[in-house]
């Protein structure tokens, strides 16, 4: 469906101006090779700045790669970027083009610009707004909606005028559970009814584990792993994650706690440890009994998530992924 081969893109270095420090060149996409199959929900997971948006912008014909190829449904998108618009619908991370329109006009206009006639565009607009529960907000300018509602309205516009491939750059940012569910069931319906393929950008591991068929983990422009979420998690199956949250600071006077110190990832009051199951059990016993207990605010014990996979694969950003 979509084949990406050895794709590379470097942003040039910026010379410093007064008040603006110079920035070095950034290799935002580094020799990326991927295959997305028809009908799957394929994810790009990575922390901020990993190069997810840069990669999808090259797949959507918005940006020309320095080298490499992109083929979608048999069309060479590097040579014919304008064809992308006739194959896919894209929901970008920014949506300033629609901001000042009403929800209803944004959806209708987008449909018309996808080549629908007025009647079809209006009918699809009404159906999509209804499907996403936006009918009550239809007459409101998008700018005056809340962040999550705005995102949902832009998602609605992306759905008007059916396409075999949906490219969604962090579609659920700022959405509450109800809105997210609306997004996922709309995506799922298009896949079940039309065999639509979805390319989803996210930095949320829970989202990645639950909605994706396959996921490519991106770090500093490179794909460091690509498999099903459960396949990836098998790589770290032998480990358990222990999160300890201290009330104020870690009780380093307790020798067992002090001994853990050089194995933890610290972020504020939180300590994260990746341990073999028996070790984890011992740590839990230590901190829930005895002197350390008084200093403990909360703890969790979990089987590994994609975040652990990311870190185990050598991902650079320690706290870059979100569990929510």
């Amino acid at each position: 469906m979509c084949a990406v081969r050895a794709l590379t893109k470097t942003y040039p270095a910026q010379r410093g101006r007064r008040g603006v420090p110079a920035s070095p060149e950034v290799r935002a996409t580094d020799d990326v090779t991927l295959d997305i199959r028809r009908g799957e929900i394929f994810g790009l997971l990575g922390p901020n700045g990993a190069g997810k948006s840069t990669l999808v912008r090259q797949l959507t014909g918005l940006m020309r790669p320095d080298s490499g190829s992109v083929e979608i449904l048999g069309h060479d998108i590097v040579r014919h970027p304008e064809r992308a618009a006739r194959i896919l619908a894209y929901l970008g991370q920014e949506s300033s083009a629609l901001d000042e329109l009403t929800v209803s006009l944004a959806a209708e206009t987008t449909g018309r610009l996808r080549g629908l006639d007025v009647r079809r565009a209006r009918a699809e607009r009404d159906a999509v707004l209804d499907e996403l529960g936006l009918t009550g907000l239809a007459a409101r300018p998008i700018k005056k909606l809340s962040g999550g509602q705005r995102r949902l309205a832009c998602f609605a516009a992306a759905l008007v005028g059916e396409r075999p491939l949906l490219v969604l750059d962090e579609p659920t940012t700022g959405m509450d559970p109800v809105a997210r569910r609306a997004v996922w069931s709309a995506v799922d319906r298009r896949r079940a009814e039309h065999g639509a393929t979805v390319l989803l950008v996210t930095h949320n591991v829970i989202e990645a584990e639950t909605v994706l068929d396959r996921v490519a983990v991106l770090d500093r422009g490179r794909v460091i792993a690509c498999d099903t979420p459960s396949g990836l998690k098998e790589k770290v199956a032998g480990e358990v994650r222990v999160d300890l949250v201290w009330r104020e600071s870690a009780p380093l006077n307790v020798p067992e706690v002090a001994a853990l110190r050089d194995r933890v990832v610290e972020s504020g009051r939180r300590w994260t440890l990746r341990l073999a199951p028996e070790e984890a059990r011992a740590v839990v016993a230590t901190v829930t009994g005895g002197a350390a207990f008084a200093a403990l605010d909360d703890f969790t014990l979990a089987t590994p998530s994609l975040e652990d996979v990311y870190l185990a694969l050598g991902g650079a950003a320690r706290q870059g992924l979100v569990r929510a």
Binding site: T210, D243, T300, A302
Partner: peptide, 19 residues
Amino acid sequence: VPAGATASNDPSEGELRDV
């Protein structure tokens, strides 16, 4: 341990599962 799923019971998880 280790079969217990995430102890931090995330509400969004259940919600996403019905896909």
